[in-house]
């Protein structure tokens, strides 16, 4: 009798069963402490990468290119064309650093998740906590970069304010998906494949020139990739060429986040709660 009573009260308020204890913030605060004490310099150094790209390509190369057609068809400076793309890339990179290599190390070597999942935390707590931390890093890089854009006069519209939630969404998508992919990786060689795929995506997702330079087949291929959606979304916002079609990009990221969370949670359960 007492057993049933305990069981009944124990299971109350837990719609996701044993997957989620509603305590992802403890995982986040752990990450925050760890970053603060060991590698905040590494984190900060990541802020500069997109800035260097912007200075060399946007201002340097931009002097040769002159102006290009922006999303709405208006002429904009080359720097204003690539800056939003680099902003999306900054969000992506920040999220990817934490959700791939760092997660791989914690999962395979430091046994951090073994320890976490021996407590009352569930796999979804761990997934959400780690992904949130990764997305915060993405958001941090993006915020820093947006300030640089503002100083250089590359935010051409008030819509640019909405680029902030947009980059958070992008970072969330990459963090979630990145952790899901990483959770299936077993060796360093497999991890290197992630970098191998990210580089061309960075270069070819209409980052440095419009999509229209490609033949239609390649265009479709690029449009399937997540970064292109991010670049388009952010570029439309910072240049002020906003229309309802942007919601498709938002939807793309929402799906990416959901898929990443589901797979990460399932994988963590399979790995640590067999």
């Amino acid at each position: 009798m007492t057993g049933t009573l305990v069981e009944a009260s124990a299971r109350r308020d837990r719609p996701l069963g044993s997957l989620y204890a509603g305590n992802a913030r403890s995982v986040m605060s752990r990450g925050w402490r760890a970053t603060r004490s060991t590698n905040w310099l590494v984190v900060v150094s990541g802020l500069f990468e997109p800035v260097f790209y912007l200075l060399s390509m946007g201002l340097g190369l931009g002097a040769l290119v002159g102006t290009v057609d922006g999303p709405g068809g208006t002429e904009i400076s080359y720097a204003a064309f690539i800056a939003p793309a680099l902003l999306a890339v900054a969000a992506m990179n920040g999220a990817i650093y934490d959700s791939t290599w760092n997660v791989f190390f914690k999962m395979r070597f430091s046994k951090l998740y073994d320890g976490m999942l021996a407590t009352s935390l569930g796999p979804l707590d761990v997934a959400l906590g780690e992904i949130s931390l990764a997305l915060l890093r993405g958001a941090l890089y993006a915020t820093g970069f947006m300030l640089v854009m503002q100083v250089l006069g590359l935010n051409l519209s008030w819509w640019a304010l909405l680029a902030f939630p947009a980059v958070v969404l992008i970072a969330f998508g990459f963090a979630s998906f990145g952790m899901a992919v990483t959770s299936y990786m077993k060796t360093f060689q497999q991890m290197d494949w992630i970098n191998f795929l990210l580089l061309p995506m960075f270069l070819f997702s209409a980052t440095f020139y419009p999509l229209s330079v490609y033949p239609p087949v390649i265009q479709t291929l690029i449009q399937c990739l997540p970064l292109w959606h991010g670049v388009e979304l952010v570029r439309s916002l910072t240049t002020g060429a906003v229309d309802v079609g942007l919601l498709w990009h938002v939807l793309y990221y929402l799906v990416m986040i959901a898929v990443g969370l589901v797979f990460t949670t399932r994988r963590l359960r399979a790995l640590f709660l067999d």
């Binding site: 069981e7 299971r11 044993s18 021996a118 407590t119 009352s120 935390l121 569930g122």
Partner: peptide, 8 residues
């Protein structure tokens, strides 16, 4: 069935 409750 009650992993988190027990682990707590």
């Amino acid at each position: 069935r009650y992993g988190p409750e027990i682990r707590a």
